[in-house]
């Protein structure tokens, strides 16, 4: 029994990481339809923000809490820059956006390699996150996993509130649902696009901060996580945050349970098969936006 519970907790914490990584994408990809392959490099930028910050603020605890908003701003500004310079010209060509942003991600990775060096670097975790909470003898929950879970849930709540109850959120939803009608209603859609991109990319920065708690960081860390994140959004469905939330936790749990009975590599492959099978059932993802298009 405790084995299953502890595997479930592992699954939930894998899901929380997936969710944090995918949350920004569910805005830029899910809401705006932009496939930003450089999203992984925004995650990397967030992680390196912690690394640089720890050179200034030596206390790991303080640096973590300063890093969260700072990484949000750093990654968000990178996103806005990308939107203004390139993506804005490509809204009509989604597949080309994918390739262009892949090029951007190559350049950003090499920049990171030139600035910080190719080998992975380690950041320090604050003391209060290194311990464990012991529930029974077999069931031990590690603090940093709990912290990431809290962070992911907080991000989801904040984003939901922002989208549902603020005027910016209303504008974002209006542009997503009907861009032309939003434009003639007086919404500056270009500005909304930039703001959406800022928030989505900023969330990638926050995810990067969280990833520093789990292991070393390096120039290629973005590529390793980006595919999983895209799968979460694809399976979750366009235009709904709750789809990404459910799918992230479902995939995390599935992976940890399969991993327990087989191996990590087999689990990854089975998760992929599960997603393809799932798309047979719901080709548009778990939740769909009702439109009159022919899709």
């Amino acid at each position: 029994m405790t084995v299953i519970v502890s595997q479930l907790f592992t699954g939930v914490s894998i899901g929380a990481v997936l969710l944090l990584i995918a949350l920004g994408l569910s805005l830029t990809f899910g809401q705006m339809g932009v496939i930003n392959m450089a999203h992984g490099e925004f995650i990397m930028a967030g992680a390196y923000t912690v690394y640089v910050l720890q050179k200034v603020i030596t206390d790991a605890g303080w640096s973590l809490f300063v890093a969260l908003p700072l990484a949000f701003a750093v990654a968000g500004l990178m996103g806005v820059l990308l939107e203004v310079l390139l993506i804005r010209r490509l809204y009509a060509r989604p597949l080309d956006t994918l390739l262009v942003t892949w090029g951007v991600s190559l350049i950003l990775q090499q920049l990171a390699r030139d600035i910080f060096g190719a080998p992975n670097v380690q950041t320090r975790a604050p003391d209060f996150l290194t311990g464990n909470i012991k529930i029974t003898d077999d069931l031990v929950l590690s603090n940093n996993r709990l912290f990431i879970l809290t962070l992911a849930l907080a991000a989801v709540v904040a984003l939901t509130v922002a989208l549902r109850y603020t005027s910016l959120g209303r504008r974002i939803r209006a542009v997503v649902q009907n861009r032309d009608l939003a434009a003639v209603s007086g919404i500056a859609t270009g500005r909304v696009d930039r703001l959406t991109f800022f928030i989505g990319s900023g969330l990638a920065g926050v995810a990067g901060v969280a990833l520093t708690l789990l292991g070393p960081i390096g120039p290629t860390m973005g590529t390793n996580v980006i595919v999983d994140a895209f799968l979460v959004v694809v399976a979750g469905g366009i235009g709904h945050l709750k789809g990404s939330v459910i799918v992230a936790f479902a995939l995390g749990t599935l992976q940890s349970l399969v991993e327990y009975s087989t191996t990590v590599s087999v689990a990854k492959v089975l998760v992929f098969v599960a997603i393809v099978a799932f798309l047979q059932w719901r080709p548009q993802g778990l939740f769909t936006l009702r439109t009159r298009s022919l899709a």
């Binding site: 990809f29 339809g33 496939i35 989604p94 597949l95 994918l98 595919v227 895209f230 799968l231 694809v234 990590v264 590599s265 087999v266 990854k268 492959v269 992929f272 997603i275 393809v276 798309l279 047979q280 080709p283 899709a295």
Partner: peptide
């Protein structure tokens, strides 16, 4: 099932990732 465009691109990429891991 009319999965297409970017969805197909991402699935095909995920297949490459899965194969390498395997």
């Amino acid at each position: 099932r009319r999965v297409r465009g970017a969805y197909f691109a991402i699935l095909s990429q995920a297949l490459a990732a899965a194969m390498v891991i395997l």
